[in-house]
Structure formats: C-alpha cells, structure tokens
Simulated scan of single mutants.
Amino acid sequence: MSAYDPLRLVNLAAMSLVKDEALAICSLEYLPMELYPPLFMAAFSGRHSEILKAMVQAWPFARLPLGGLMQKPHQGTIQAVLDGLDVLLAQKVHPRRCKLRVLDLRNTGQDFWNMWSGDMDHVPSSSLMAPVAEDMSRTKHPLTPLVIHGSVTEEQDHQALLQFTSQILRLQYLRDLRMAGPSFLEGRLNQMLRCLKTSLYNISITNCLLTESDLTHLSQCWNICQLKGLNLNGVTLTNFRAELLQVLLEKVAGTLEELDLNLCGIMDFHLMAILPVLSSCSQLRVLSLCGNLISMTVLESLLRHTDGLSALSLELYPAPRESYSSLGILHQERLAQLKAELWEILTDLGRPRKIWVSPSPCPHCGEDMCYHLSPNA
C-alpha cells in the first residue's frame, strides 16, 4: 500500500483561494501571514498575474525571495511581480500591511518556499532560512527604499537572463541598486541607469567585471547626484585610468557617506588621484580600502588628507605594501613596525580616529587579521 501524504490545511486554503481571483485580491488585507507564502506559490505556478501584482503591494514580510521560484521563469508572472513593485514604489503612501524592503533574486531553490509555506519534508540549509526567521520578527518596520539582490548561476538559460533583465529595467522608481556578481552587466551599465527616473541613494555593484565605459557612464549619470553609498567591492579597477574614479567621486562629494573600494586592485596612482576629492567629501562616515596594494607613503598621505573629515568615524585600510616580501609573504615584525609609525602619525594629527589595518587573509586559516589603531587626542 502506498503512503498517502495529505496536504496541510494552509495549502488547501491557498489552492482554493487562488481559484477566485477577485476574492483572493480583496482578502489580502485580512489573510493571516502564514497563508501568504503558499498563496504566492499557487498564484506563481498558476500564472495568476493580477493576484501576484496585488500580493506584492500587500506583502507582509521584509523579504520576497522570488529567486527560489525562478528556475523556469515565465514572462507573464515576472512581469506581474515587477508591475506590482512599480506601483508600490510610485506610491507616496504605502499600504498599511506592506513591509517589503528586499526583492531577493538568489536561486535558493523551491525547497526554500516549501519550507516557508509549512512543508517540513523539505529542509533547506539553515543559512537560507535565516532571512525568513528575520522577516517573521520584523513586520513592524516601515517600508524603506527597495533593495534589487540578485545572482546568476551558470545553468540559467541565456535567453531567460536577457528576458529577465529587460523586465527589471521597468523598475523606474528604484532608490537602492544592489547587485552581487551580475555576469550580464559588463558593458551594459548605461542601459540599466538610463531607464531610472529618480535619484539613487545607494549603489552596490560587487564581484563583477565592468568596463571603463561603464565607469564613465556611472560618473556622468544624473541619478547619482544624491548618492549616499557607493560599493564597488571586488570590481577590478587596476587598468582603469585614475581620473575616472576621481570624476565619479567629484560628482558625489557633497552627499557621499559610505565608500567601499575593497579588493578593487587599486594602486598608489589611483589613490593619489582621488586624495584631493576624498578630502572634500564632508559627509563621509565610512571609508574602506582593504585588499588593495598601497604603499606606506600613500597610506600616510591618505591619513593626512582625510584628517579634516569630522564625520569620518570608521576607516578600514590594507596593511602597507612594505609589510610583504617580494613573494607576497606577510612579515609580522615589519607590519608591527609600520603600525607603530601609523600610530605616531595619528597621534601627531591629534584627533581620535577609529582605524583598522587588515593584511591579506591568513594563509593558514583564511581569516582576515585586523589591527585597531585609535590613539587618544
């Protein structure tokens, strides 16, 4: 006799509700939160576009993990979700129940949704379930600018990727642009920026390839006139002209609060080119340059140029280039000597500063080793 696994009542309720589109939409305000994930799954698989559009605008969690349902995306369903987001972002007064802050496009797999909707036979990794637990406990938070998280896997069909990117360009009210490892972005950043109608507050494009043309377009884009955060972590700038980064920072010097250029392949000539404009970033609070090859002389110059930035409260720098041998081996004694010199420079400048100096990851454990320098005035 074969085993029989009956569906849970919450799943049966979702399957029943999705059959009546008008009823499903008008009931969203009153549905228990536990019913939202299974109802969304049923609407997505059944291609009920109007229900999806309405659900996005009433989503009671901080995160919508759409990527877990997109192994075989359908244009109509993705279109409906993006239409719902467009309407939501355009509204001056957001629906009372909506808590959506993050559209997560990572491929977490459908097991993620099965677990979220209550099917305990499907158990994803605890790391994937962590955002769900967080969402359940943070529903009282107001809606903040939407954040676009995406990753592209090799098995995704190229044509589906092009189709998806053409749809995501329709989010004309985007405030935060955050992209991790977008393989399709190289040489196409301008196509993504020119469709936006409002100013961006944060740009995070990490661990991907960009061209000089991409950086030029970014620096010329009017949408960055109010930029507060710029994160290019893992974007190699080694062979780029130094003035490109200088022009970009000049454009945002009046508003920039956080700058992350970790692991960008920045050399001394890049940093020397941007030192003058860095000293004029009066709102800068966080500056991170870890993982770049910078000499002690340039690092000293950096400390002096940024000394007048009263808002600067956290600085993360790489260990000076002189800390390493010609083979890239870290010399602890030499690093200690250079740390003492940096300490003297900070003491001489006379203002308390929170500075971390981090060498490359330890060859034994792979962890970053950080050293805190914060002399008293």
Rank of each mutant, 00 (worst) to 15 (best):
V56Q: 02
T306R: 01
L342W: 07
Q191R: 10
L215V: 13
P131K: 04
S117W: 02
H74A: 12
N207E: 04
D348N: 12
T77K: 07
K251M: 10
H305Q: 12
L259F: 07
E315P: 08
M179G: 07
D83R: 05
T198Y: 00
R47K: 14
I224C: 07
K53Y: 08
N292D: 07
G187S: 10
S374R: 10
N233E: 12
H305D: 11
P95H: 14
L189P: 06
N190E: 14
A58G: 03
R321V: 04
V81S: 04
L12V: 09
L349D: 08
I274M: 13
K354Q: 14
T255F: 05
P73M: 05
M120C: 09
Y201S: 12
I78Y: 08
R175A: 06
P131W: 15
V252K: 00
Q75W: 09
G84P: 10
S151Q: 10
Q226H: 14
P6I: 07
A253M: 10
L349G: 04
G67D: 08
E212F: 02
P375L: 00
C26L: 11
I168Y: 03
A42V: 02
L103K: 11
L330D: 10
L105P: 06
M267T: 15
C264E: 04
P32M: 01
F40L: 05
Q79H: 13
D268V: 04
V81I: 15
I224P: 03
V132A: 08
N11E: 15
P60Y: 04
P359S: 06
L100R: 11
Y324V: 06
P60G: 05
Y317W: 14
P142V: 00
F112K: 09
D348R: 13
R138F: 04
P95K: 09
A340Q: 14
P320D: 03
E250Q: 15
Q191V: 03
G350M: 07
L249Y: 02
Y324R: 06
T139M: 05
S2E: 00
L309M: 05
L209H: 09
L261C: 08
N11Y: 08
D111C: 12
W222R: 02
S326D: 15
G308Y: 00
V357R: 00
S313V: 03
S137F: 02
P142A: 06
W116L: 15
C225N: 09
P276T: 04
S2R: 03
Q156S: 08
S199E: 09
A90P: 04
S219N: 08
P359D: 01
Q220E: 13
L227S: 10
S279D: 00
Q110N: 09
D307G: 00
P32T: 08
R353K: 11
N231Q: 07
G187P: 11
V286W: 14
W343S: 11
